[in-house]
Design a protein around this nucleic acid. Structure first.
Lengths: 190, 190
DNA sequence: CAGATTGGCTAGCACTGCTAGAATCAGTGT
DNA sequence: ACACTGATTCTAGCAGTGCTAGCCAATCTG
């Protein structure tokens, strides 16, 4: 029994290695640079090994996305705690969200722009993703009317996401970014 | 001289044909289905002909994006005219924007999500794109403070874009879409 | 009608994600 | 200690991608 346990342990370790390598690669050189060959070379195994762990490239990137979500959730939570309770939270959490997207644009892309084989907004959604949303809910709580907290959080998320992606791919000039954010938050706060 | 004119006319006509075929293909089967081979077959020429008109696939899709923007601008303008002057305009134009994105998701993707070799938010920006933005400006004019019209329009654009993309790629459940939109617009209106 | 030139086409390169089947290693029983 | 067996990893290849070099033919010029 113990030898099988060891094998499974080694397998799990290698799977972690694959996801880590994929994340490093996507953060450093972008999604297009993540090819199965380069990834395999990076983990020092042959290509087909990847397919014994994941159904395909999409599944690997889904795992990367979940890992990234854990980081984002942690950063949002930290930002929420730092802020004085009250109005400040919204600004702090929003800034943390945008900072994450700016710092890891390619990772962010995988998490929220690509179509991935992941369940969203259902009970089976990976907890890291649920936690991200929960932090947004906390941030909007003070300014949400009764029963509209979740909806308002979704709206905030959409706005930040739109701001981030349009800026990142060149549609919006970076220069007025702060003015846009300030205006958005003041209006959302009502 | 006239024979050269005819040649240029034929060339321009063929270029239009390429862009049209690319648009049909992307709308019908999505970006990934637009391969240079399939596109060439569709216009009944060989692959290399595409490259005598466009620098590469990206340039073709940029042309498709510009064409799509003209349509979007027309629809936004129509929505703006229909609405009674005043608060209604914002809701009508927003609805038109979202409807366009829902009706032509793949075209929308090319226009606003892909990284394209196009100048954005500069004087050289294709007029169709500038007109889209101008319509958004008109829509937010009644509720914009002095000097913040353009910024507010950018914010509106970002929010609509975020709402649309997060919904479209499964991150937000479609079911509460209307509530989100209503909440967003009411808050943005102040 | 011969010659020059423009143009499109055939064929191919280097790459992609993915997989069938050969080869090699491990663990087992004698 | 050794051959056997079964799982696991690798080699080699498929069908497809965007893009391009160089041939070939149709077109216009003198």
């Amino acid at each position: 029994m113990s030898i099988q346990a060891r094998r499974e342990r080694e397998r799990a370790e290698r799977e972690r290695l694959i996801v880590m390598a994929a994340r490093e690669l996507v953060e450093a050189e972008g999604w297009d640079a993540v090819t199965t060959r380069r990834l395999a070379e990076r983990v020092e195994y042959s290509q087909p090994v990847l397919y014994s762990h994941f159904k395909g490239k999409d599944a690997i990137m889904a795992a990367v996305a979940v890992e990234g979500s854990a980081d984002l959730a942690a950063e949002l939570r930290a930002a929420g705690r730092e802020a004085a309770p009250g109005q400040e939270t919204l600004a702090e959490v929003s800034a943390a969200y945008l900072a994450f997207g700016e710092r890891c644009p390619e990772l962010y892309d995988v998490m929220f722009n690509r179509v991935l084989p992941l369940p969203w907004a259902t009970p089976e959604t990976p907890s890291a993703l649920q936690e991200c949303f929960a932090e947004l809910c906390r941030a909007v709580r003070p300014m949400a009317g009764p029963g509209e907290e979740a909806v308002l959080a979704e709206v905030l998320w959409s706005c930040l996401h739109g701001l981030l992606t349009l800026t990142r791919n060149g549609r919006l000039p970076r220069q007025d970014h702060d003015r846009r954010l300030a205006l958005l938050l003041s209006r959302l706060a009502g």
